[in-house]
């Protein structure tokens, strides 16, 4: 029997187990990883936004959070870690810093599935604010220890503000993608 499609509102951040029920081409399972990689690369493009200075939104963080929440099977620990390593390589920052942060975000977001799946989008957004702040706090602590200096936290907070502001724009297509991959309706 064909699985019954549930009418889900666009304001919902997720639904059900969020896992493949329809036969899916094996290669398609790499899509979240590839999309996340593209977002990580986009986060390194010289966009030239004057008021931001060299701080750019952490698109990779959004991707890791959304996919870990929606499809933890397609955003495993190693993938989150790998995306973080690529971010570190591109940024020239301490190698391993973002990798550890993304690993933590993946574990944290995946552990909150029961709390967040099926809740209104605004709640998901608020949860991301908490995740982004925690990630910035951990990054800042690691950076302080790494550089043996009290690193200025303003840039990290600015990045959180920009990333959180852009979250709906980036997360919406990612949610749509993960819903499509689960074969569930996303109105």
């Amino acid at each position: 029997m064909k699985p019954r499609r549930r009418k889900s509102a666009s304001s919902r951040i997720g639904d059900g187990p969020g896992l493949p029920q329809l036969g899916f081409w094996r290669l398609g399972l790499a899509i979240p990883g590839l999309v996340s990689l593209v977002l990580v690369l986009m986060g390194s493009l010289p966009i030239g936004v004057p008021f931001l200075g060299p701080v750019l939104p952490a698109f990779g963080l959004i991707a890791v959070h959304v996919f870990a929440l929606q499809r933890p099977d397609l955003m495993p620990h190693w993938l989150a870690f790998g995306l973080g390593l690529v971010t570190d390589l591109l940024s020239g920052g301490p190698l391993g810093l973002t990798a550890l942060v993304f690993l933590g975000v993946q574990a944290l977001s995946a552990s909150q599935r029961r709390v967040l799946i099926g809740r209104p989008f605004v709640l998901g957004w608020a949860a991301f604010v908490a995740v982004a702040l925690a990630a910035a706090g951990v990054s800042w602590l690691i950076a302080c220890v790494y550089f043996l200096d009290l690193v200025n936290p303003v840039a990290a907070l600015l990045q959180v503000a920009v990333t959180v502001t852009l979250f709906p724009l980036v997360a919406a297509p990612l949610l749509l993608l993960s819903h499509r991959m689960t074969g569930q309706a996303f109105a």
Binding site: G43, S44, L45, P46, A58, L90, S91, G93, A143
Partner: peptide
């Protein structure tokens, strides 16, 4: 040509 920015809050580099 500059093809990338660090983008991060703790390092200021360009590629």
């Amino acid at each position: 040509r500059v093809v990338g920015e660090s983008g991060g809050p703790f390092v200021k580099t360009l590629l």
